[in-house]
Deep mutational scan, measured.
Amino acid sequence: MTGIVKWFNADKGFGFITPDDGSKDVFVHFSAIQNDGYKSLDEGQKVSFTIESGAKGPAAGNVTSL
């Protein structure tokens, strides 16, 4: 699925993605970002991701920028 990064705190390594389908915002951890180098996201960035079952509920996985 796709969405827009609502916010991401690079110091803490997590944030939230707002899915394009209008569903509830999804937690994203830096370890789910699939790019080389520094793993961070920018507010407003368009991303593709999967929904994984995290310890505290749904979380984004396999996050790639579009």
Rank of each mutant, 00 (worst) to 15 (best):
M1N: 09
M1P: 05
M1W: 09
T2I: 11
T2K: 08
T2S: 08
T2L: 09
T2D: 04
G3R: 00
G3D: 00
I4E: 06
I4N: 05
I4A: 06
V5G: 00
V5T: 03
V5M: 03
W7D: 02
W7L: 03
F8D: 01
N9Q: 06
N9A: 09
A10W: 10
A10G: 11
A10T: 14
D11Q: 13
K12P: 02
G13S: 03
G13E: 02
F14Q: 03
F14E: 03
F14C: 05
F14L: 05
G15Y: 02
G15Q: 00
G15T: 01
F16S: 03
F16Y: 07
I17Q: 00
I17F: 02
I17H: 00
T18A: 14
T18S: 12
P19H: 03
D20W: 06
D20E: 08
D20F: 08
D21H: 07
D21A: 05
G22R: 06
S23L: 07
S23V: 05
S23M: 07
D25T: 06
V26S: 01
F27C: 03
F27N: 02
V28D: 00
H29D: 04
H29V: 04
H29K: 03
H29S: 05
F30W: 15
F30M: 11
S31P: 03
S31V: 04
S31R: 08
I33R: 02
I33S: 03
I33W: 06
Q34M: 13
Q34D: 10
N35K: 15
N35D: 14
D36H: 12
D36N: 12
G37V: 09
K39I: 07
K39W: 08
K39V: 06
S40P: 07
L41C: 03
D42Y: 15
D42Q: 15
E43Y: 14
G44M: 05
G44V: 02
G44T: 03
Q45W: 10
Q45S: 11
Q45G: 08
Q45H: 07
V47S: 00
V47Q: 00
V47M: 02
T50N: 08
T50W: 10
I51G: 03
E52F: 09
E52A: 08
E52C: 11
S53T: 13
G54M: 10
G54C: 09
G54Y: 11
A55P: 15
A55V: 12
K56M: 12
G57D: 04
G57Q: 06
G57T: 05
P58D: 11
A59E: 14
A59S: 13
A60G: 04
A60E: 01
G61M: 15
G61K: 15
G61D: 07
N62K: 12
N62G: 08
V63Q: 01
V63F: 01
S65L: 14
S65C: 13
S65A: 13
L66C: 11
